[in-house]
Design a protein around this nucleic acid. Structure first.
Lengths: 239, 239
DNA sequence: AATAATAACCTGTCATACAGGTTTTGAGGA
DNA sequence: TCCTCAAAACCTGTATGACAGGTTATTATT
């Protein structure tokens, strides 16, 4: 066994990593819930016997991952589940060409085939209405691509929310950033108005299936939707 | 003309967020790839006209998300895709009880039904061997739960890798931390040796199906595996 | 007792300093 | 000319002190 929880110093991981672990450990051991306050930087400084610089970098790192909320004058608090860090990881993968847009779409398809089925089974009436509303807004604003896109994204996020599994919401939302960067490309390849309206119709079909509570039908429409979207992206030359 | 040193523009996000964006923007605009070096802290300090403290907190934040690698003396470099941040988000959700273990398993099931099918279609011979190897090691070390668990995790990660979609790998690996915390509980409920061996047999069936290149069969076995695992967790009282 | 002023505390940012680690440079020797 | 190796230059890790401005607790005044 080569463990070194040593008294003198910790060379390898660095003081900041240690501080990050100490903070997350604190959240765990104290059973803190979102909104609960964390120790002040000064307190952490004393407890860990390091400089405020180190403690601050630790807090800031957790804040960047959206695990805690920071704001001037107030102590940091435990954060609600947020997609910030995940989005950044995905975006990083895309911009450094370690993952392709098509790969993201394959994952989205996999996940959303499930969220849409769960939504059909578990959606509340309000959720079904929100989903249908997004689809309707897509049609109404079909002259303005940017607006259609935002409603499209809201549509998919609403379905994820209606799955009543926040992990699905987390992942779907994390992908929204990628969608924002590629959506318009796909839209442009649907040259004719007819194609564009057909795509919007697809969303309405999904919303209807969810409203009817038919998971199989909802999944079918979702699959169709993704297949067409991916095809549009491939036609546009997205690797 | 040079930079716009924000006369009246963004007060709320704070200098550090701005710096983080500047760095990621740099990666994007320069088309940096993993391993490429970033500007030094001093350079960023000059470019953004802020103190090194701010720049350092920005770098450190990106490092915490594993988007960049830092080490003493060397400039920071663009990092390879890593699951660090995602794991922390999931763990945070679990420890603050914003998501349940069962919800994670539902997502895992959804994703791994797909990875296993893709693995059956796209696996190389080496990957098929690695998957089978993990299953074999599970059986051989079946007296030592901890070891079985590690091979089990390696098994699932190997399947994700064989899907040839790094996004799947990313997500599956991010869940491994949760698995490490709950696996033993599920194992204990399989009281009899017979149950435990049956579970290991399930893994071998999956490995065989992947080797045979039969996605449907592989997915069937995977579904069965997850259904039993979830049942074991529920029996053990995991909410 | 209600309210307003004040003190105490907290985070955001800056400047400076120094201890190591890493890369570059350059001088001297083969 | 080319190699070796040590000094120099550069870089990050950490500590300290300072101050502005926001937030909460305390106290004084009415």
């Amino acid at each position: 066994m080569h463990e070194q929880t040593d008294p003198p110093d910790e060379p390898s991981p660095g003081l900041v990593s240690t501080a990050i672990q100490a903070i997350t450990q604190h959240i765990r051991s104290e059973g803190l819930a979102p909104g609960d306050p964390l120790p002040s930087e000064a307190a952490m400084t004393r407890q860990l016997n390091v400089s405020r610089t180190v403690v601050r970098e630790a807090f800031r790192s957790l804040s960047a991952m959206r695990l805690i909320d920071m704001s001037a004058g107030r102590r940091a608090t435990v954060a609600k589940l947020d997609t910030g860090a995940m989005s950044m990881v995905i975006e990083h993968g895309i911009t450094t060409q370690q993952i392709s847009v098509q790969q993201v779409y394959d994952v989205r398809r996999t996940i959303e085939m499930r969220t849409v089925a769960l939504a059909a089974l578990r959606r509340t009436n309000a959720e079904a209405a929100a989903i249908a509303q997004s689809a309707r807004l897509m049609r109404e604003s079909c002259k303005n691509p940017e607006t259609v896109m935002e409603h499209d994204i809201a549509f998919h996020e609403a379905i994820a929310a209606a799955s009543h599994n926040p992990v699905f919401s987390l992942i779907v939302t994390a992908f929204s950033g990628v969608t924002r960067r590629t959506w318009v490309i796909g839209w442009r390849t649907r040259s004719s108005d007819e194609d564009q309206l057909k795509m919007i119709k697809g969303h309405e079909d999904i919303a209807d299936a969810i409203l009817k509570g038919d998971p199989r039908l909802a999944a079918e429409h979702m699959a169709e939707h993704f297949d067409k979207s991916v095809k549009a992206l491939i036609d546009a030359g997205i690797a």
